[in-house]
Each structure stands twice: as C-alpha cells, then as structure tokens.
Design a binder for these strands. Structure first.
Length: 361
DNA sequence: AATACGGGGCT
DNA sequence: AGCCCAGTATT
C-alpha cells in the first residue's frame, strides 16, 4: 500500500496521546518504559513508570539498588522476571558499558529482558534505526488492513508480519512510524469495537471490506489452565511476629515473599488439612522445622471458601490459616509492621489489606 | 514449536 | 468465562 506510512503518521500526529516517555529520547527512560509496557496496558504501567523514574533517576541508581527493593517497587505489576532482568541489565549497562546504552538493535537485543520488540523500539525511538516493531497492536493492524490470516503466534506468522512491517516502515522517521502504528492499534484499531467507520484506512482495509474484522488477527491454540490449592500459614507469636519465606525455583512469583505454604492436590476438608499440615517443613532463612514440632496453640481458618486468584496459566484456590504460637519458634521471624517492606504476590497483598494481626494477640 | 510467566480491564 | 495487553526466556 503506497502512502501507508504517510497516512499513518499523519493520523498519529493528530491523535497521539501525550505520554511521559514521549517527552524524551533518553535510552534509560525509553528502555524502562518498554520493559514496563511488555504485556501491560499503558494505564496500568504508568504509575510504575513514575515511581521508578523518581526512585531511580538514572541507570546507575537502579544498578546500585538491592534487588529486593526493585522487586518491591515492581510489586503488583506481574511477570516479575521483568524486574529481575531490569536490574541485571542496569548493572550490566552501568558497569560494563560505562553507563551508556548500546545504540543498535543488534547490541540492544543482547541485553537480558530485551527481545526483538524492545530492541527495535529502543533502536528506533532513541537512535533512529529503521527497525520495525511488531507487538500485539502491529499484528492486529496489519492482519486486518492486509487481510492476513497467518496465525500471529506461529513461526511463519512472526516472520511474515515482521517482514511486512519492515517493508512499510518510514526509514526517514522510524521512531514516529513505530509509535504511530502501535498507537493506532491501541486506540483506533482496537481488539473489540474498533472505529472502522471513521478509519483513514477503511477503504483499503481488507478485513473491513470483507466483514472479517472480528476474525483477525488469527491466533492458534488455547492455553490450558492448571488448578492449584494453596494453604498459607500466617504464624503469630505472642510478641507480634510472623514468618515469611522467599520463593525460589522456577515457578510463579520467583523472588517474591510469601507465607509458609502447604500446597495440596485438592481443596481439603478442614480436618484433613489439620492432619496433613503436621508433616509440613517450615523453612525460613535455611533453618527448617516440622510444623508438629512447633509450639502451636491454635489454628484458625480465615475463610470458608477459598479465594480464587487467576493467573494466565493457573487458577489458584487460596486459603489463609492463622497459626497462633505459644512461644517464639526457633526460626527467623519478622514483626508484622515490617511486612510492607517485602514484595509479595497480589493475592497476599490484597488479603493483608483487610487483615489485622492485633485481632490475634 | 510449545509453554510458562501476573494482573487487570473489557465484553 | 474468554480474550487481550508497547513480549521474553526456557523447554
């Protein structure tokens, strides 16, 4: 389509939103915004962008922060490996690149957490390199206008859309073109109820002309969601202390903190739970004790029905149990006033909002 | 080529 | 309930 980029940029200049990261070409801020915006809506990411810029004004400030602080600031945004990669890359740039970001797509892509999309975005926006971005918006816009039904989440699809975007990009102003096509997808060519009637491309839009707007883009395969059953143990000592553990391994919420946890195959009846929990090993800071060897005074279930917490690949059934101890356990404990210092999953943060330790002292 | 990885908003 | 979001890394 001749003139595509001209029309697109014209539309953009008249319709773009004023966003904080559009006021700068500073690679640190562009990089930060792009990581935050991965699989995340602008409105959801914006508050996090502000707090990161304020807390860590430059890449060195971020590099020198403790990882747990970065995780805490990221709390609630999800996909926490982004925060760990963000921190690792900040260290890399600060101390192996002398605080200067790489200035090409090829070099940017070598950074942790920077894939094809993000490398293209930074290279084009900060350094005017003609590297086409392909994100969810671009897939949608191109699949509809050009009537392409190749599944966007297939290898052929990825190649086809990337090549098309690269063909269409305005090599004189790749920064504006890339942001324009994404903005167009986000606010005009939306997933549901796009504004086709006053779309500048509707005459040439294959999907619109053929009434296939709701059929494009095509996405293959449905993800399966796994049910999991979590029983969180909120220990309470006579002097108002509780226990937290930091999650390790490869699963969800790696690096975040949560309460000692008994995971079960099903939603156990209360009696079965009280039986099973006895053999649970409680571990904080490398020391570990069997639940049954603890000075347990009382175990109180906090809700009859589990709290349902949905993730992209898991459906969590969560119960919280208060465990009153008659004396301090031989494990590391923390004062409940300090719970707010730790990055915790949303489901725990939300539960703590209307939970008062004082009720159990 | 598939799958894991969060949380929230919209329909 | 299902889909999608300025995707990336791992298997």
């Amino acid at each position: 389509m001749l003139n595509f980029s001209k029309k697109l940029i014209h539309w953009y200049l008249q319709n773009k939103r004023e966003l904080p990261w559009r006021q700068t070409k500073d690679p640190y801020r562009i990089w930060l915004s792009e990581i935050i915006l991965q699989q995340t809506r602008v409105e959801q990411g914006m508050p996090y962008y502000f707090s990161f810029v304020e807390t860590y004004p430059d890449v060195k400030a971020l590099a020198d922060a403790p990882e747990d602080d970065v995780l805490k600031l990221w709390q609630g945004l999800g996909y926490y490996s982004r925060a760990r990669n963000l921190h690792a890359t900040a260290k890399k740039v600060a101390y192996e690149h002398k605080g200067i970001f790489p200035d090409t797509y090829k070099e940017l892509k070598k950074l942790k957490g920077v894939g094809d999309y993000t490398a293209s975005a930074i290279a084009s926006i900060c350094f005017d390199e003609a590297a086409a971005v392909v994100d969810g918006n671009v897939y949608r816009v191109l699949s509809r206008i050009f009537g392409i039904d190749t599944p966007i989440n297939s290898t052929p699809g990825a190649k086809e859309f990337k090549a098309l975007a690269q063909e269409l990009i305005d090599e004189k102003d790749p920064a504006t073109f890339n942001q324009a096509i994404m903005e167009f997808g986000a606010t005009q060519c939306k997933p549901k109820n796009p504004y086709c009637l006053h779309c500048p491309f509707n005459e040439g839009c294959i999907a619109f002309q053929q009434g296939k707007i709701s059929d494009l883009p095509v996405k293959k395969g449905k993800i399966k969601v796994r049910d999991r059953f979590f029983n969180y143990l909120i220990f309470i000592t006579p002097d108002g202390q509780t226990m937290l553990q930091q999650r390790e391994g490869k699963g969800i919420w790696r690096g975040l903190f949560d309460f000692p946890l008994l995971e079960t195959e099903k939603d156990l009846p209360e009696a079965r739970f009280r039986e099973s929990v006895n053999s649970l090993k409680i571990t904080t800071k490398e020391k570990s004790i069997r639940f049954s060897d603890l000075p347990v005074e009382e175990v109180i279930l906090q809700q009859r029905d589990p709290i349902i917490h949905k993730l992209s690949h898991q459906k969590l059934h969560v119960k919280f149990w208060v465990v009153k101890l008659s004396e301090a356990p031989g494990l590391q404990t923390i004062a409940y006033e300090r719970l707010g210092d730790f990055a915790v999953p949303r489901v725990i943060d939300r539960f703590m909002e209307d939970f008062d330790f004082k009720d159990f002292l």
